[in-house]
């Protein structure tokens, strides 16, 4: 028999979790169930009537060349955001973790990108690279003696610029966590290593990086979610998925089909596919992470 935590108030614990349970049920569970349900139907644009179509939406999805193209774009985009982003962040965090005058100022200056809304960040980058009036095409044309960069007609350039903007926007967040992680590394470890003759490289790869691995695992996951879902605003402001689908990542394609073309069923199926893909990746990551990560000192 388990001991009663709240003797005489059997319902109290349930009452206490009710508010959060309700929020989760109303805003997460029910919409999720609805998405699964909708993905087996095709509905009129304004939802006045719908027809059960079984898995036709899913079949259509994997026959759609545009969708497969979006999958590839998403993989390139998220790989860039995750790996380039984390590498740069860890380097900057190392620099920002030194004992120098005014370090507080530098640290705040480095993390402010996270405080920007995607719309603001997108507008800044879009204006910087605007084909006719932007400063970057101007600088590039001066440096290269006349090369006119137009990312509105060059899909590789567009994908690169959007990836760079997304990475830049996330830098602040990553740096905060890396600085915190670096500050948690006990000084004695580093000191004894340097007494044993470890240089900066080996002290990074043998001590700092392994000690940071829980942070890295966490950030890998957060950055993956970011690259898959939260960059929507950035893409919408900067390229609208163009040129010629060149930056149409999965979540933007979903938006196009669901909210512009008003195909609820087709968009629901896409949303479920992304969900399953992310769930698998997350489980995989957790598996590896719990095996490899060093959580104890």
């Amino acid at each position: 028999m388990q001991e009663e935590r709240f003797p005489g108030h059997k319902l109290l614990p349930y009452l206490l979790i009710l508010p959060s349970a309700l929020v989760i049920i109303i805003f997460l569970v029910i919409p999720f169930a609805q998405t699964i349900f909708e993905s087996f139907f095709q509905a009129t644009p304004f939802g006045t009537h719908k027809v059960f179509v079984g898995i036709a939406n899913y079949i259509q999805l994997f026959e759609d060349m545009d969708y497969l193209h979006s999958v590839i774009i998403t993989l390139i985009f998220s790989a860039f955001v995750i790996f380039v982003g984390l590498t740069i962040s860890i380097l900057i965090a190392m620099l920002a973790n030194q004992k120098i005058k005014g370090i507080g100022f530098y640290q705040i200056a480095l993390i402010w990108t996270y405080a920007l809304s995607p719309a603001v960040a997108g507008t800044i980058w879009a204006m910087m690279f605007a084909p006719a009036t932007g400063i970057m095409p101007y600088i590039i044309s001066k440096l290269t003696n006349g090369y006119a960069l137009n990312w509105m007609t060059n899909s590789s350039a567009a994908l690169f610029i959007v990836s760079a903007a997304a990475t830049w926007k996330m830098l602040g967040y990553n740096i905060v966590f890396f600085i915190a992680g670096l500050q948690n590394i006990p000084q004695e470890l580093l000191e004894s290593a340097s007494v044993d003759g470890a240089g900066p490289w080996s002290s990074f790869f043998r001590i700092k990086f392994p000690m940071l691995s829980p942070t890295v695992t966490f950030l890998l996951f957060v950055n993956m979610l970011y690259a898959f879902f939260q960059v929507f605003g950035l893409i919408d402001i900067m390229t609208k998925g163009g040129p010629g689908n060149g930056t149409q990542i999965l979540v933007y394609k979903l938006y196009q089909d669901g909210f512009v073309n008003l195909k609820t069923g087709f968009a629901s199926a896409q949303s479920l596919v992304i969900f399953v893909a992310i769930a698998i990746l997350a489980l995989f990551q957790l598996r590896i992470a719990t095996k490899r990560a060093v959580y104890e000192r």
Partner: peptide
């Protein structure tokens, strides 16, 4: 010059004398 989608870039290019 294709300045992309949206309604801001082409107006700006005309206003700045780039076209």
């Amino acid at each position: 010059l294709d300045v992309g989608p949206g309604w801001a870039n082409h107006r700006a290019a005309f206003g700045s004398g780039d076209v």
